[in-house]
């Protein structure tokens, strides 16, 4: 019974996850003619700077999402039931609109003659260069991925038993102690999945940097260029994807180990 019900998911996984992975690996290790080679992977080295920049911007965005998202999730989880529903809805609402449209909207806001600068002029302040900066890229990422940080943390916090908070107070904790010794360690699983859900798409994004970062090429953009654009080097694109996946995987593994230890050590 159970096995048969799982079949559609197994097929789905096979077609949309396993097969593409195999194809990525295949193309990464072959030449255009299909012969085995390590050339592609060696060539990836030339893009080390871009890799680094992508990871850096992804990490900065993730950190900002965490700094905003955590208190937001905590406030949501402590609100009354109907306020909670409204806040979750507000948090999800931007996602009802297409990702591309939202990012274009930011373009018109941040442009040199855009909404924000017009406003600055109106109140007699000098214009700011916002579009085509890495700040704009980070803003775009934070805006687009913040809900992915809030929701998992909120989900964990809402399940947190208030009696544990009272137990900690009873044993002598003030609010800071309650946070440090109980709330924070118990919300680590939410933080980990929030970080994963923000960092992974942020580090590999390619539209945000293109639209808000002007000419800035992040690793996502370069991969796109190899596959669809002018460069037209599927094999190099596959090799880059493979390296990116491995980097993300390692980062996540480090995160998880750190997270496990954190929840144990946070109290001592």
């Amino acid at each position: 019974m159970k096995k048969r019900a799982a079949l559609p998911y197994i097929v789905w996984m096979l077609v949309f996850t396993i097969v593409p992975m195999i194809m990525v690996v295949y193309f990464a290790f072959t030449t255009k003619e299909g012969a085995f080679t390590l050339e592609n992977l060696i060539q990836v080295k030339e893009y080390a700077g871009t890799f680094w920049e992508s990871i850096e911007l992804g990490a900065v965005s993730t950190l900002i999402c965490l700094l905003f998202g955590y208190p937001m999730a905590a406030i949501m989880a402590r609100s009354k039931a109907h306020v909670q529903r409204t806040l979750v809805l507000l948090c999800m609402m931007p996602m009802w609109m297409n990702f591309l449209l939202r990012t274009y909207a930011w373009m018109t806001i941040l442009e040199n003659n855009g909404l924000f600068n017009s406003f600055l002029q109106l109140i007699g302040l000098p214009k700011l260069q916002m579009i085509n900066t890495s700040g704009a890229i980070v803003l775009g990422m934070v805006y687009n991925f913040l809900p992915f940080m809030i929701i998992p943390i909120y989900t964990v916090m809402v399940k947190l038993d208030t009696r544990l908070v009272e137990a900690a107070q009873d044993l002598g904790c003030n609010w800071l102690g309650v946070f440090r010794r109980v709330i924070l360690p118990l919300s680590v699983p939410g933080i980990i999945s929030g970080i994963t859900m923000v960092f992974v798409p942020a580090a590999s994004t390619f539209i945000i940097s293109k639209l808000l970062g002007g000419g800035t090429m992040l690793i996502g953009d370069i991969i796109e260029l190899q596959i669809t654009g002018g460069a037209n080097n599927l094999n190099l694109g596959a090799a880059m994807s493979l390296v990116l996946m491995i980097i993300v995987l390692i980062t996540m593994m480090v995160m998880n180990v750190f997270g496990d230890r954190e929840s144990e050590v946070a109290l001592v």
Partner: peptide, 18 residues
């Protein structure tokens, strides 16, 4: 509560799961 010299054993214990 944290300044009171009393301790509580809660209904259903409320032990720290972590």
């Amino acid at each position: 509560p944290y300044k009171r010299p009393v301790n509580t054993i809660f209904q259903r214990y409320a032990l720290f799961p972590h």
